[in-house]
């Protein structure tokens, strides 16, 4: 029998009617349309589905959505504010903390949960915390570097993704206006 539940996802209340056997992962992806959270192993090992529930990092593939009634859920989609990337997201770009990117939302959510709890972890503490988030591409060296860059304030203060803002200025040109001859 379907149940009515209310979840707060990235600060927004979501009222849903779901079967009790629905997993948080699938409800986020299929009912709410937040596909940033990924399914990798389906048994809580790989961490691709990591989200934060009431401040705790969990595997959404092993969490019943029905059990999350009234809870506060953070997913990768909630990190960037007003188009500005979260420092971790920025660091992952600057330091190459991903390749294929399928594990990246989980990696970033795991790192966020760590930094929320301990803003100044050592590299060993990061390794211990993050080792439950598997990555098959990077060998983890650049993931660690990315997280430590945030810890040590080594991200660029004037970061822009591929100079988007300057692009916006260029795009504001009226491209249909005839080009003035150089004479």
């Amino acid at each position: 029998m379907k149940r009515k539940i209310t979840l707060t996802v990235n600060g927004k209340e979501q009222e849903l009617e779901i079967e009790p056997n629905r997993l948080l992962l699938h409800v986020l992806r299929e009912e709410i349309g937040l596909t940033g959270t990924k399914e990798g192993c389906s048994i809580g090992v790989c961490g691709a589905c990591s989200v934060i529930v009431d401040g705790r990092l969990v595997s959404s593939c092993l969490t019943l959505a029905a059990g999350c009634e009234g809870r506060d859920i953070e997913t990768i989609e909630g990190l960037a504010k007003d188009g500005n990337l979260h420092p971790l997201q920025q660091a992952f770009i600057e330091y190459g903390g991903f390749q294929c990117g399928i594990c990246t939302p989980g990696q970033i959510m795991a790192a966020k949960a760590l930094l929320d709890e301990n803003p100044k972890p050592t590299a060993d503490e990061v390794k211990e915390w993050m080792s439950g988030n598997l990555c098959r591409c990077t060998g983890y060296y650049k993931i660690l570097e990315s997280v430590m860059a945030v810890v040590n304030n080594k991200i660029s203060p004037d970061f822009q993704f591929r100079k988007r803002e300057q692009q916006a200025k260029i795009q504001s040109l009226d491209v249909y206006k005839p080009v003035a001859k150089t004479d």
């Binding site: 809580g44 961490g47 705790r56 990092l57 595997s59 092993l62 795991a110 439950g132 988030n133």
Partner: peptide
């Protein structure tokens, strides 16, 4: 035990 995510659950 495992890692923090599983210990959290």
């Amino acid at each position: 035990v495992a890692q923090p995510r599983i210990r959290n659950m």
